[in-house]
Simulated assay, not measured.
Amino acid sequence: MNVPALLPALLLVAALPSLALAAERPEGIAAAEAIARAALGADCDMNGMEDVPMAGPEAEGFGHALYRFAYKPGYDPNGPDIEAEIYQLFCGSGAYNIRNAFVLKTGDSDTPKLIAFATPHLAYEYANEENSRLAADPRIDGFRATALLVNASFDEKTRTITSHTAWRGIGDAWDSGEWVFRNGDFRLTRFEFDPTYGDPDPTVPKSYVVYEAGK
């Protein structure tokens, strides 16, 4: 058996998966990456990867995704549909969280834009040193905008982006948000969090829904 003669063929076969991934990257993904990197810098370094693959539904977030749909604009509800593209970008990962950015391109504009998500700023105090109980119910003392979500996903049926941030590895403290696409942009519709650590206490709420649209 002539092993050296087989090496070129084996190397070619080994390279095929990466070539296929590169071929699957859609037009527009490079521009979306450039927008996110320029705006977010080291927060969207994509773990140093030069070519982030397009991820399937079972890829656990370590890749980009592209979603397409059409919608009726509020300013012309009887007019033609507007085509939209949403690029969900893998910006990086830590020990137990994945950072995502989203870039939106609509048919009525040639310029893709980085989506900024409204999130509440929460005021609360702990009642003990273990941080297992709050001294009082939390409250919102303002809102901020962020272009990075954590462990995010997009539901194509409801056109909703959700996030779920684990505050530490075991996930006992966390926050979660929902943003729904309406008339060309995403609006915060729900935000829930659990700031308490340790074993669940039956006398403490499991979580706090601090914002819900319409309430």
Rank of each mutant, 00 (worst) to 15 (best):
V3D: 00
L6N: 05
L7K: 09
A9T: 12
V13K: 01
A14C: 14
A14K: 08
E24D: 13
R25Y: 04
A34R: 15
A34S: 12
A36W: 00
L40K: 01
G41D: 08
A42T: 12
M49V: 02
E50W: 04
E50L: 11
P53A: 02
P53I: 00
M54P: 04
P57Q: 10
A59T: 07
A59C: 11
G61F: 03
G63L: 01
H64S: 02
Y67A: 14
N78V: 06
G79Q: 08
A84Q: 08
S93R: 01
G94N: 05
Y96K: 04
Y96Q: 02
I98Y: 07
F102M: 12
K113W: 02
F117C: 01
H121R: 12
Y126W: 12
A127T: 06
A127D: 15
N131K: 14
N131F: 13
D137A: 15
I140F: 03
G142I: 04
A145Y: 12
V150H: 00
V150S: 07
A152M: 10
K157N: 14
T158R: 12
I170D: 11
W174L: 09
G177A: 09
G177N: 06
V180T: 09
V180F: 03
F181A: 00
D185Q: 13
T189D: 06
R190C: 06
G198E: 03
D199A: 15
V204P: 04
K206W: 09
S207M: 00
Y208R: 08
A213I: 02
G214Y: 09
G214H: 03
